[in-house]
Design a protein around this nucleic acid. Structure first.
Length: 562
RNA sequence: GAUUCCGUAGCUCAGCUGGUAGAGCAAUACACUUUUAAUGUAUGGGCCCUGGGUUCGAAUCCCAGCGGAAUCACCA
């Protein structure tokens, strides 16, 4: 697909040619030895030290026989000083006059050998003795500039462009890079903490025949050889529990899960969840473990337990507050949900102006009340505990109240960050709960769970008492990096595909002659003044890009706009 | 899915109640040996998101579509 080139892109291609004509390879193969990173050189300045550095040239200030440029590597930027007569000591000033001044463009990768010095203004710089083009850039980058007062001008801010072309975003917006470095650090810290406990990192299937472990709509795909539908996992819970049955004491997985639901600033179709299962523990133990884990991670990432999210200060200092679901609803609405029937709960929802559907059971109704009226009010980390039985089909009954379960969710900044159970290990109870879910499906709840027979079989062999937790990693990263949209913490958030249809003149001509009303193809052919070959090509192009529809009927072949 | 806002040069944006497309940065050319949002002079660069309509005339008004953002709904 040949896209029209802008003037600057044409110029850069011409420059590329000139470089080749000079005998310089714009994409050399060999290694360029790098001795230092920009940031280290600035932090540990040693006058006259010889260094070799590489990166993108991000600015150029040419002043006749001397010039300054900025080199950006993975660590940051450092200034380069090019002096014509030092760079080209002999008669031939080509390298400076031609290659550096004219043939290098902003964004090009160069490697530089030189010595450290400070300019008169005190800026740490590299006095370049020689340089080498490492890779030519053919597209101009957006070039935000920071002025003396620290204000950024011409910042590359268009969210659509930033997400679609994250590589550009990363080159040009250092804050974005920071976010992703922090993301990685969060994963590393969590992994280390889990390994320190002796837990085993495992991998379980992403393609599942029965999508279980959560209430959500799955993506469906198809396996050709087996000729069966397969689902992208919505959770890995049931597999991790099988491993506990198999005799591991603690297993965890950083799992990409997939849910075929709406997209907005807190939901991406694929997201990352850390799930952990520990044998012989209960949800109370897990609360203690979780608050220690999070406190440790927050300390590691932010160097303190308090952090600014939006305009609120959130403290991750353990212990976190613990509130039962019943208390939470009582606190926030004045209603007591204890011992209420489904109908009473439904009336309660109506009183609270919460929309209800006939498919909703008692559990779902309580969940609605909580998420509508309570969840948003818990800003500091809070464990909400003891959820109603019906909405927690994989969770053990509460040891004191059989209508409740031993479950908690961790709410921070009004949003769920983690969900945890004393896992249900009674196979008969588990089968009944699945069957209850099945009845919900029949009532029209398309998220209720299917019965995973093999999982039940594994429970029948016996699973030790186990506590499990799932932590929404993307949301955790959002919190710890103070980003309020999930797209900002995913390198490549899901976007609608770009329409990259480029049409030839003839394509456009034919397209303009078509309308939503079908017309005979032969009629159109006579109007279009072109060769048969061009005609054929254009039609194929247009129909391939779903711009026109060509179809056959008894009366002949017809064409219409899609 | 609903509502609101947005789509103009490589980037950031201006362009009023319709009348020949603008600025800064970037680009090109020239000058300039410690500058730093370097500077000075000159020059080039636009399917004004797409398709219809109204009009003598549309970047501008109307309709539809595409893409994005925000809010809500759905949803962990």
């Amino acid at each position: 697909m040949s896209q029209e080139l802008s003037e600057q892109e044409e110029q850069r291609r011409q420059t590329l040619e000139k470089i080749r004509q000079l005998g310089v390879e714009p994409y050399p193969a060999e290694e360029f030895f790098v001795s230092h990173l920009a940031e280290t050189l600035k932090k540990e300045f040693v006058e006259n030290q010889e260094v070799q550095i590489a990166g993108r040239m991000m600015s150029q200030r040419i002043m006749g026989k001397a010039s300054f440029a900025e080199l950006q590597d993975s660590s940051g930027r450092i200034q380069l000083y090019f002096n014509r007569d030092e760079l080209c000591p002999g008669e031939d000033k080509m390298l400076y006059n031609e290659v550096f001044k004219k043939l290098l463009d902003l964004g090009d990768f160069i490697g530089v050998v030189g010595r450290m010095f400070k300019t008169q203004v005190g800026e740490i710089s590299v006095n370049v003795a020689s340089f080498k083009l490492l890779s030519k850039s053919l597209k101009p980058l957006p070039l935000p500039k920071i002025d003396a007062e620290g204000y950024t001008h011409d910042a590359f801010t268009d969210a659509e462009l930033r997400y679609r072309q994250r590589y550009v975003d990363l080159v040009v917006n250092p804050k974005v890079k920071e976010t992703f470095i922090k993301r990685s650090l969060i994963f590393t810290l969590m992994r280390k903490a889990l390994e320190r406990q002796g837990f085993l990192e495992v991998e379980t299937p992403i393609l599942q025949a029965i999508p279980g472990g959560a209430a959500a709509r799955p993506f469906i795909t198809h396996h050709n050889a087996l000729d069966i539908p397969l689902y992208l996992r919505i959770a890995n819970e049931l597999y991790l529990k099988r491993l506990i049955v198999g005799g591991f004491d603690g297993v965890f997985e950083f799992a990409k899960d997939f849910r075929n639901e709406g997209m907005d600033r807190t939901h991406n179709p694929e997201f990352t969840m850390m799930e952990l299962y520990v044998a012989y523990k209960d949800y109370r133990w897990m609360m203690g473990f979780t608050e220690q884990l999070l406190q440790e991670i927050v300390l590691g990432v932010c160097e303190k337990t308090e952090l600014l999210v939006g305009d609120q200060i959130i403290s991750f200092k353990a212990p976190f507050r613990r509130v039962t679901m019943r208390q939470a609803i009582l606190e926030n609405t004045g209603f007591d949900i204890a011992d209420k029937t489904e109908n009473q709960l439904r009336d309660m929802c109506i009183d609270l102006n919460i929309e209800v559907q006939p498919s909703m059971g008692a559990g779902k109704l309580i969940d609605e009340i909580f998420s509508e009226k309570c969840e948003g009010n818990y800003i500091n980390p809070t464990f909400i505990t003891d959820y109603p039985l019906e909405m927690s089909p994989l969770c053990k009954r509460h040891r004191e109240d059989p209508s409740l379960t031993e479950r908690f969710e961790l709410i921070v900044d009004g949003k769920e960050i983690a969900n945890s159970y004393s896992e249900l290990n009674d196979p008969i109870d588990q089968r009944e709960r699945f069957e209850a879910q099945l009845r919900l499906t029949e009532r029209g709840d398309d998220e209720a769970m299917l019965i995973d027979q093999d999982f039940l079989r594994s429970l029948e062999y016996g699973m030790p008492p186990t506590s499990g937790i799932g932590i929404g990693m993307d949301r955790l990263v959002m919190l710890l990096t103070n980003n309020h949209s999930i797209q900002e913490v995913l390198f490549f958030p899901q976007m609608r595909p770009e329409k990259t249809v480029s049409l030839s003149e003839l394509d456009k001509l034919i397209l303009n002659m078509c309308s939503e009303n079908p017309q005979a193809l032969s009629e159109l052919r006579t109007k279009a003044d072109c060769s048969n070959k061009q005609w054929d090509l254009s039609l194929k192009h247009l129909s391939k890009n779903q711009l026109v529809l060509i179809y056959k009927q008894e009366e002949g072949v017809f064409i219409k706009k899609f």
